[in-house]
């Protein structure tokens, strides 16, 4: 049974159809990545899965009692709200200090526990968000462009950590990504969205699909420029997790 399955999702904002009959599901242990141009409805689909946006039509079915962890694209914490990292990690549920320490260590945020959230760097902040989600021992982790604003090493180690946790816990992962390089190397399945699902399948299948090429182009033209994806294919050789085909199917 899928951890979460969305069927025939329709959402419109002010007359404009944002999601038009979208089907998507995540199996245990699977990394599914959602790609699509800006304004294609990616974030709306995430909100539908989280239950923040109620679809006009269609259903979202969850495994009963699903533990869902969520890593937002960005979290603005108002300057008037004092919040240490430790306190944030225990929202809304408190965790045992030993548990917090273990997750902090593996997320690479030890030593930051007493810092204010507003005083963290972009990379530290994203790691804290991930640590908070991992502390709930999620069966399904939902990430919305979690590495936006991170530099390349930061991004690489973020996805390494994600992959490591996935291997150990067998959680399912559903993420939105702008980074086509990561998508192709770290996903089991790619769903290409442009209001409706244009194509989906293993990274290799999707990459060669005409619908995908129409949206993202191929080679170093088109999408790569569109997404400011400034490292090109030669980067594949020294990248630490270039195992795109391993999880295919």
């Amino acid at each position: 049974m899928s951890l979460i399955a969305a069927r025939d999702i329709h959402v419109s904002y002010g007359g404009a159809l944002v999601l038009d009959g979208v089907d998507v599901e995540v199996e245990p242990g699977e990394i599914v990545t959602l790609v699509g141009p800006n304004g294609s409805g990616k974030s709306t689909l995430v909100k539908v899965l989280l239950g923040v946006v109620r679809p006009d039509r269609g259903t979202v079915t969850r495994v009963p009692g699903l533990r869902l962890g969520y890593v937002p694209q960005k979290l603005h914490i108002d300057a008037s709200l004092p919040m240490t990292v430790t306190r944030f990690l225990s929202l809304p549920t408190r965790h045992a200090p030993a548990e917090v320490a273990a997750v902090a260590a593996r997320s690479g945020i030890e030593g930051l526990e007493q810092r204010q959230m507003t005083a963290l760097s972009g990379g530290q902040f994203q790691r804290v968000l991930l640590a908070r989600a991992l502390l709930t021992d999620p069966q399904l982790l939902v990430l919305d462009e979690p590495t936006q604003g991170l530099d390349q090493p930061g991004e690489a180690s973020f996805y390494e950590l994600l992959e490591q946790v996935r291997r150990e816990t067998g959680m399912g992962v559903f993420m939105v990504s702008h980074d086509l390089h990561v998508v192709m190397s770290a996903s089991d399945r790619v769903v290409c969205l442009n209001h409706h699902v244009c194509c989906s399948g293993t990274p290799t299948v999707v990459q060669s699909a005409p619908e995908y090429r129409a949206l993202f182009g191929h080679g170093t033209h088109g999408a790569l420029a569109l997404y400011q994806h400034d490292h090109d294919h030669e980067h594949d050789h020294d990248h630490s997790h270039g195992h795109g085909g391993d999880h295919a199917g």
Binding site: L50, V52, Y70, P72, L75, I77, L91
Partner: peptide, 20 residues
């Protein structure tokens, strides 16, 4: 805890089963 989480973000709240 629910109020605090909902104050931080509707989405974080929803993921934890909290109705903002």
């Amino acid at each position: 805890s629910r109020l605090l989480t909902a104050t931080l973000s509707r989405e974080l709240a929803a993921a934890s089963g909290i109705d903002a």
